[in-house]
Design a binder for these strands. Structure first.
Lengths: 227, 227
DNA sequence: TGTTTTCCTGTCCGAACGGACAGGTCATAC
DNA sequence: GTATGACCTGTCCGTTCGGACAGGAAAACA
């Protein structure tokens, strides 16, 4: 948790405009340092605080009153859920706050979840610094900012979410056992149903996952996290 | 590709010691900027060049003659192979060069591969800046530098490598396609081998993974992280 | 030189798979 | 009541799989 120089109050005077107050949230000190150096070179941007965890971020938010948050969803826990929850928390406490998600890897559904949790933009960390600054200025103008890959990811994620995962309980059970390499007969014995019934469920699983074999079903399911 | 201030020649004079010349290789401009800012604050360290690709790195190496390289294995291609190849290339050209691998995620076998390709240290990017600087000074003294997690990863990787995952390159290729639900015939067409050969590889994969079906093989492989 | 390793190819065969039918039960919702 | 959805069962049939067996070609290594 770090705080730094206080910029002029945001009531822009004649001729001179107060810089946008930015809070950095990232568990990598190196990344925070890089962002701070890059952003503080811009006269209209000012990093007013840093945080490496969700709790720190809330604390620094209260003390520094930023207008913009640069947020890496993947905080120390390794999961994205803490970052998403923080995003929702921040925008809940300060509805006027603009959150730009800055993340390492592209993850189609994550883009959508970030938006649903209040993010105004989503860019991958390997963008040029000029693109990053352009994105920050965009969200400062109450626009949204998505680099082209994130926009594509959003489109893909929306297209691919009519109802792909509407697996019933039985089908999920079958999928579990199927992943362990069990034969239809074995699955039937395990679930107290006939082999034919298992085949019935397997066919539905294949159809719903839009695949053509058990192996591919396992692959898809593990990608999505169903097993 | 970037070059900056020239430090005093390395023939340390009386009382004053020339700083260690460092080359940064990372495809993220933000990370490079952060590292540069952090390291240039230290009087005994000096960043003499940056590169975002393997080719650039070779070029900057020739022009700036660094003693230490901070290398992110995952360059723009997304794969680690380019970074590993670069690591080997660098240490081949300059045997006295010390390479500290600085990477985002921990990957047990990758630690070992990095060492085999000439790296002198391996640290995760979320270390404290003080730890990072300590690691750099360690490899400058011809020691090695591994943060505790990397050391653990090394131990695990060595322990866990009697021969469970001794899949050959071909077998890994087949496993990849197998995971996507392809039939033996399709895999053969893809890899320019006969269907029979694919069956041969599939049988070996099943045996080595100690499973009895393609679906289970996919499950195991995804658990281990092979696909 | 010979041996080992890796990769490649083939045949034969029984078991399993995946699709296309045609039904049935049961609980809940309209 | 009847419709709807989830679940269950069966037969038929062509394809695929996985195992067993029997080799050949090329490179690496002793």
């Amino acid at each position: 948790m770090t705080m730094t120089r206080e910029p002029a109050p945001n009531t822009g005077a004649h001729g001179t405009v107060a810089p946008h107050r930015i809070l950095l949230v990232d568990d990598h000190a190196i990344v925070r340092q890089g962002l701070r150096t890059i952003l503080d070179r811009e006269p209209d941007l000012c990093v007013v605080g840093e945080a490496s965890t969700a709790n720190e971020a809330i604390g620094v938010l209260e003390q520094t009153n930023p207008q913009i948050v640069l947020l890496d969803l993947k905080l120390s826990t390794g999961s994205d859920t803490e970052g998403l929850a923080l995003c929702a928390d921040l925008t809940m406490r300060r509805p006027e706050l603009r959150v730009l998600v800055l993340t390492t890897f592209l993850d189609d559904p994550l883009v959508v979840e970030a938006i649903q949790n209040g993010a105004s933009g989503y860019v991958i960390k390997d963008v040029d610094t000029t693109d990053l600054i352009r994105s920050i200025r965009a969200i400062a103008r109450n626009e949204t900012a998505f680099d082209s890959r994130s926009a594509n990811a959003m489109a893909r994620s929306i297209q691919a979410t009519p109802e792909p995962l509407a697996l019933t309980q039985k089908e999920r059970n079958v999928l579990q056992l199927l992943a362990h390499g069990m034969r239809n007969r074995e699955i039937g014995l395990q679930l107290y149903v006939s082999e034919t019934t298992v085949k019935f469920h397997v066919r539905n699983i294949l159809r719903k996952l839009a695949v053509s074999s058990r192996a591919e079903a396992v692959y898809e399911a593990s990608k999505i996290g169903l097993i």
